[in-house]
């Protein structure tokens, strides 16, 4: 187990299981605060429901039916509303995060799966897999702004934190399509490895990370040139290469570590985000899909599609501490302070 001592002092002073006394002392000296409570919302693809989990306690609080085949989920900037793609209803639902009642719908286009929000929280960008489109939605007006043609089976989508780009990956065309947010047009395309899945910008908007499910790699693209600058493979003793199918990505805001869900390899890869090297593999539940940080970055949550649970990973120790059964096919997760 790798423990980054500097990181360990930052903002985390819960009982430090396994850590040395000196680290605990350091932690106290640095003025760490107790882990803040958070609430997780997990979409359950097969249960047509949303699971609500107390993240700090690691306990399932309740489950609410919401619509057919819920997958992508995003929390509004004010934390009051959840946007959930109920794929087989062909809409994105607006759900009150307290009451879990549906308060409206957004016109997402057919079969919405993944979507991303702009930094101001005003627009959503939706991948319409069956139609080869990215649909832009004005949240306040609850109206479609534009449909942008992209490659076959658009999947991953991300908005750069500086607001300049929307990156859309297409799984069968095998490209990243660079949509200029001001023009709402594709202005460049980058060919990537087969079946690109998730895409995620670094906080400084300088890099785009893309996972390729079939090649089993993480690609790091330079945003300025829109070229691939690093191709990171994964090797896990006792796990065949075919089982390594990278999907979800989370990168911490300091760009210290990046985390990659490896699907049926049942691991999360920890990437040194400065050196762009794999530093650890964390064993989690089966077929790990998507990842999310707690709002204070003290934990990482994983949705595990086959074992029907979520795993809790303590940061920065990179220690898997708990799994919480949530329901059938947990897909997406957001954390609310």
């Amino acid at each position: 187990m790798k423990v980054n001592q500097v990181a360990a002092c930052r903002g985390d002073s819960r009982p430090a299981r396994g850590l040395s006394a000196s680290l605990v002392l350091l932690s106290l000296l640095s003025g760490g605060t107790p882990a803040a409570a958070d609430t997780l919302y997990v979409t359950l693809e097969k249960d047509n429901a949303l699971a609500v989990v107390d993240g700090a306690a690691g306990k399932l609080v309740k489950t609410a039916k919401i619509g057919k085949r819920p997958r992508g989920i995003v929390l509004s900037r004010d934390g009051q509303q959840l946007y959930v793609a109920t794929s087989d209803d062909d809409v994105i639902q607006i759900i009150d995060a307290d009451s879990l009642r549906k308060v409206g719908t957004l016109p997402s286009g057919d079969d919405p799966e993944t979507f991303a929000m702009d930094p101001e929280g005003k627009f959503l960008y939706v991948s319409n897999e069956d139609d080869n489109l990215v649909t832009v939605i004005d949240i306040a007006k609850r109206a479609k702004v534009k449909s942008i043609p992209v490659g076959v089976e658009p999947e991953g989508i991300a908005v750069s934190p500086d607001g300049q780009w929307v990156a859309s990956t297409s799984e069968t065309t095998n490209m990243v399509h660079w949509i200029d947010r001001a023009k709402l047009e594709v202005v460049d395309n980058t060919l990537v490895d087969p079946r690109p899945r998730a895409a995620s910008f670094t906080a400084d908007s300088k890099q785009l990370w893309v996972t390729s499910e079939i090649a089993g790699v993480l690609l790091v693209l330079d945003v300025a040139t829109r070229q691939v600058i690093k191709r990171i493979g994964f090797k896990i003793p006792g796990v065949t290469a075919e089982k390594i199918q990278p999907v979800g990505i989370r990168i911490d805001p300091q760009r210290r570590y990046g985390y990659i869900a490896l699907g049926p390899a049942n691991r999360v890869a920890v990437i040194d985000a400065a050196k762009l090297e794999v530093v650890d593999y964390l064993l989690v539940g089966q077929r790990v899909w998507n990842l999310e940080f707690s709002p204070d970055y003290a934990r990482l949550y994983t949705t595990n599609g086959v074992s029907n649970d979520i795993s809790l990973i303590e940061l920065p120790e990179h220690r898997v501490t708990k799994s919480v059964a949530v329901g059938n096919y947990p897909w997406g997760v957001v954390a609310r302070p």
């Binding site: 139609d131 043609p149 395309n189």
Partner: peptide, 15 residues
């Protein structure tokens, strides 16, 4: 399907 119509109507990107 709607997608084909959209796709065929869409102009290919400049490059």
């Amino acid at each position: 399907n709607a997608a084909d119509k959209t796709a065929s109507a869409a102009k290919a990107p400049a490059q």
